[in-house]
Design a protein around this nucleic acid. Structure first.
Lengths: 208, 208
DNA sequence: CATGGTTTTTGACCTATATCAAACGTATTT
DNA sequence: AAATACGTTTGATATAGGTCAAAAACCATG
């Protein structure tokens, strides 16, 4: 336990807009988010961006870099945030001694793979309304798991970032929010979302 | 080394169409493909399917199941195949003793995460022609790495499976193949592909 | 607390891809 | 070798979402 504490003792803060790491930088640590909100994105050479995830407190960021010892995406703070750095070689060493830590690390990496599968499903075979509904339900569930309201929350990201994540243009995201509001599924005032009819929103995504 | 051999000594063969595992089954082993070709897919309750990957010899399958000890997708043989089973608890035990094996496992899992990021990019921000070009170049590179021709290969999957993987309908896949052929980028005769102009095909995907 | 820049909303129009349908090839079974 | 099922190609048409544009709302800064 002391060893684990020592492992996660390096803390750092980031202002909104600051980069935790950039694509191409050398990898030596994973990062656990303590407070705040991040996005990860891949930039295409022609300027197109793809947001690959939004990360909240308790989540681990940087797993993609293990494969080649180089970061393969950018991680950007969407609000003032605090992270703790986990030097990866020390994590590996320690996880050889602590089977439960080893198991935990494997589960975290596997969970990331499962999450990515879900996004493939979303991008590959869902329509705009289904994508946005799935996105909001996912946020809701994660806020809920952290003790916040599952129905009422503040979006840290722009319409354009949501769109990039969901494979939609920002106008489509905006319109879909408006449709949802017209249909009484939720109230939106820009970044403030209140889910009014969770069940009907769910029926959008797993529509039998 | 002997230990490693013992670890991978369980071999099994699968006929085309057979399931290596199904979504919902309990997890206990990873699988290394020795010969053949597999696809992994997630099925939505309403019948929609999403192909999440095509796997070739040397690749490891089943990583998604570590997170919850249950398989989260189906794995289906696309041709007669041979796999070797790797009991995961024994792999974990052994990787505590062999740092290089531990490192290797982490890289494999991370590589899967990076691969998924690439697919997100593809599904989220590329057009049909770019997607198919990226898909063919990826196959080409992987065949090449296994000592096969990078320009001439046989597709083990149907147009519909390619479409599902790329977030396109099978007709669109078929038409895009035809366009590529009309433009002298490649020759297709159903499942047989010959890339004629690799450079121009590349320029489709990373088009500056 | 006014100002300039960014983000969001909404409208009108357009296009890439989906859908529907039919014909044609190619494999598998008997 | 014929019959049958399955996969592929191609055409005609429809539509979801993209593009372009302008106004409105928001917010960060001096």
């Amino acid at each position: 336990m002391q060893q684990l504490d020592a492992l996660t003792s390096l803390k750092r803060t980031f202002r909104r807009g600051e980069y935790l790491y950039r694509c191409g930088e050398n990898f030596h640590s994973l990062f656990a988010i303590r407070t705040g909100f991040f996005k990860t994105q891949v930039l295409h050479e022609d300027g197109r961006e793809q947001v690959t995830g939004f990360q909240m407190p308790g989540e681990i960021i940087g797993l993609d870099a293990i494969s080649s010892d180089v970061h393969t995406c950018d991680a950007v703070a969407l609000e003032d945030s605090e992270i703790c750095e986990i030097p990866f070689d020390r994590l590996e060493t320690l996880s050889r001694e602590l089977p439960s830590l080893q198991r935990h690390l494997h589960k975290i990496m596997s969970r990331e793979i499962v999450r990515d599968q879900g996004i493939m499903m979303l991008l590959g075979s869902m329509r705009a309304e289904e994508r946005l509904a799935a996105f909001l339900l996912n946020l809701s569930q994660r806020f809920s798991a952290r003790g916040y309201s599952p129905t009422s929350f503040y979006l840290r990201m722009t319409r354009q970032e949501i769109g990039s994540y969901l494979g939609l243009k920002l106008e489509t995201v905006s319109r879909t929010f408006s449709h949802f509001q017209e249909n009484g599924l939720l109230n939106v005032r820009v970044r403030e979302v209140e889910i009014m009819d969770m069940l009907r929103l769910r029926s959008f995504v797993s529509h039998t």
